[in-house]
Design a protein around this nucleic acid. Sequence first.
DNA 1: TCGCGTCGTCGAAGCGCTTCGACGGACCAC
DNA 2: GTGGTCCGTCGAAGCGCTTCGACGACGCGA
Lengths: 327, 327
Amino acid sequence: MARGVTIADVAARAEVAASTVSYVLSGKRSISPETAGRVMRAVAELGYHPHAGARSLASRRAGVLAMMLPLRDGMHLPVLMQFASGAVTEARRHDQDVLLMTADEGPAGLARVAASAMVDGLILMDVELRDPRVETLRRLGLPSVLIGFPAEADGLTCVDLDFTAAGRVCADYLAGRGCEDIALLGASEAVYARRTGFAERVRDGFLSRPGPRAEAWPCPDEPVAVQRTVKELLAARPGLTGMAVHNEPAVGHVMHALADAGKHVGEDFHVVVIGPDEVAERVHPQLPSVPVPAEILAETAVRHLMRKLDGLPVPDATLVEPQLTVR
Amino acid sequence: MARGVTIADVAARAEVAASTVSYVLSGKRSISPETAGRVMRAVAELGYHPHAGARSLASRRAGVLAMMLPLRDGMHLPVLMQFASGAVTEARRHDQDVLLMTADEGPAGLARVAASAMVDGLILMDVELRDPRVETLRRLGLPSVLIGFPAEADGLTCVDLDFTAAGRVCADYLAGRGCEDIALLGASEAVYARRTGFAERVRDGFLSRPGPRAEAWPCPDEPVAVQRTVKELLAARPGLTGMAVHNEPAVGHVMHALADAGKHVGEDFHVVVIGPDEVAERVHPQLPSVPVPAEILAETAVRHLMRKLDGLPVPDATLVEPQLTVR
DNA sequence: TCGCGTCGTCGAAGCGCTTCGACGGACCAC
DNA sequence: GTGGTCCGTCGAAGCGCTTCGACGACGCGA
């Protein structure tokens, strides 16, 4: 491989000054069409790509966005991946690259990438109510967008699924199937205790719908416990005909327990999942679901971040509408 | 936020030349303990982090690895995510960051990051037998490690699960449970047709075990088709008592079909999954599985890549041993 | 005593790019 | 014709770092 084509090579070939090449490429000064043409041709012929380091040094813009993902537990892996994929795709549309960080780097990691001018902005995923990274973020002044809402969100740009609406959509769906007695099988108690954010909001939305009699139960993750919980729920509410499940690992076991209890899902009993499509597709029968729209969230986050980098205004809070997929 | 602490600030505070600071930090020349101590103290007090762009410009090392993931179909999302996570974690141990790229950028993307000196090396995931990126990679001479094996792997560094061994492990497991008549329910025909790599290898490994009577069937992904396939298989092989399933979306439906056919999995019939833990855990009963060891592959890949960057020798091909998880 | 090798440190020269100020030349209005 | 504006282009000055060569100071053997 050649020792790297520099702007000087391009300039020489196009018979202009290096600064002219720079201006052609950035469009920051007007250049005559002939000159620009010659430059562009030279660029193409030489396969020139500006040296990222040099560019970031001179222009104080790295062309890179950092994305910090939670990597222990927390959100569901496929969703995370969709998110990452969506973010990269959208970032490339803005000519940015994406640096992947894991949450275990914590606040120090943020300080590091900020101080080293390695990235221009940051997307922080899976933000918890009391998140130590948020304070660091404020102090660093690094432009950022959060997925999720911390307790004190003032001055921050946050994006998330409208979980309240998601809960309501599920209740609506069940009501629409004629259910008059429904329940939400939620996350485990631990989740409610920890990041008291979306789990509550789903519940509130679910319970807010006037009409059917509704109730919310927390639900553990382990197979046996799931079966027990379902059994108890059915015993406590004999008239139950519909259920929303907001607990991915439990879905398969819920279905099993319902079958054991003699319920025919899709016929005399209705189930809707709040979770990824895969989960809802891989049980029998396949279920309707309200997934976290990871791609949309990612795109929105990147778009907002780019606007901030360009000094444009963005809304503080953005709630994305849930979409029910019927199967 | 301050306008960035530079090496000059550190030098001033430690009362040495900037070059001395640089040498302390890189260890490339010997520095007296006293001086080094003063420098390190200044670094800590000022919270100095070298400017990544400047460093890469001057040293021709970016401190960044690129990771190119397939983002349409292909590998299973959670595995990809585990992989990404493992790679980032391992990369940080070597003081490297990870840039995320998607395969849709294709060869041009490789050329771009290579020419812009944005990254020092590359990890290419989910390499197919005939992969257009491989040729570009050869031409660019960018140090790289592939996950998967292309048709012509000479001169490349490749890492992958030993799929043949994985197939054998499954056959072993079933034989160990006393099964004398077993089958492999594999990927859909399309997968066999496309990236004729691991699907075949699993099959060969599975069939290679002497002992039980064994056979391999391709299997579609759609619920109904899965059920039909299982039904046909059972009809064709009435004595069948064990099955390995190498098809993630199908697992749940296979279980359903087996139940319909009156088989009691875990008792008179045995099933083992080649796929992620989640899939095997979320059916009833939970199944033993041989997952793709994403973290190990990622770590191995990063480690190999770092060795290449340091000019050390690495094996051309590395096959990671499969591990069976019994539940 | 002198010369020479070592060690620790410094200064300066880039790395490749952006950006600022300047400078001809063309064009316009008077 | 003269002066004032643009317009398109250029040259040079950094951006913050690494690295090379040099240079005192010191210790050693002759």
